[in-house]
Amino acid sequence: MVRNDAYAGTKAKVQEIDFKIYQDQETAFNDLLAGNLDVQPQIPSSKLSAAKSSLGARMKQTPSSVIYFLTVPSYDPAFKKIEIRQAISMAIDRQQIIDKIFQGAYTNLKAWVSSVVQGARPDTCGDTCAFNPTKAKEMFTAAGGVPGNKIALYYNADGAHKEWVEAVCNQLHNNLGVTCTPSPIPTFADMRKQARAHTLKGLMRGGWSFDYPSIEDYLTPLYKTGASSNDSQYANPTFDSTLANADKAATSADAIKGYQDAEDIIAKDLPTLPMWTKNNIFGISTAMTHVDMDLYANVEPRTLEKK
């Protein structure tokens, strides 16, 4: 990609950008260390602790719009009771997993929308997202547990999810006394297909990155009845009408208020359990003096600066 010098607006600062395609992110990281690569937009999680020591200040962290959650199947009678959902959520020590497995690269999430959009509130989840194993166990037992005392947790094996899924399963086993099985599905495409068909009997990992910067994009596609990414098959007429009213709101302040009300309904019904948000964690070479990454996790080409 070459700079257009005739461009009338603010010109890019670098002359040319070469995009290098890597088959393996670890190779890219080694190239970054050796100075063959100027920007690696995502440092592989296996290299995070190495990156901290070898890159130092050249390892950067900025917020992104990506959030992660666990989808609870509304179509599976085992998870019908709200107490079961709350208990599962309270039995997970999110901060411990973030510290131990993600090396602090993720941030605890206590809401259903990313903090980067207007109208986001830091904690709409409250006690449900706070780690409380004693209360979790009590509620779980009082609600009668799950059939067979077994929970499956589905994830796609072609992404780096195995470690944290196993950690979550261990926590559910230790804190609720259930047998939790990490259940890999070979590819992401396969998992999406089964998720859309609503055939998975158990929890499933989920993630969302916004398509446009609005609180609405975290609600309509994921929770509206029949929406394309409504994996839980969540259907609540009150939620749908609250959304519809917010869509029609005259001012943006009213709209945001409406969407916040809609989020509160989700917080009561728990079709998904918030887990964490992902930051852009990228590395830059010694030659780079300025690199920005946007909320879509893309490198901003116009503000790049090189010595």
């Binding site: 290098k20 890597y22 670890e26 190779t27 080694n30 190239d31 260390l33 050796a34 100075g35 063959n36």
Partner: peptide, 20 residues
């Protein structure tokens, strides 16, 4: 990976990480 790290990164033979 070991050879790539030792020769490419530590010993600085940059062509041996990903040949251009």
């Amino acid at each position: 990976y070991l050879a790539q790290y030792i020769f490419g990164v530590k010993l600085g033979v940059s062509a041996w990480i990903s040949p251009k």
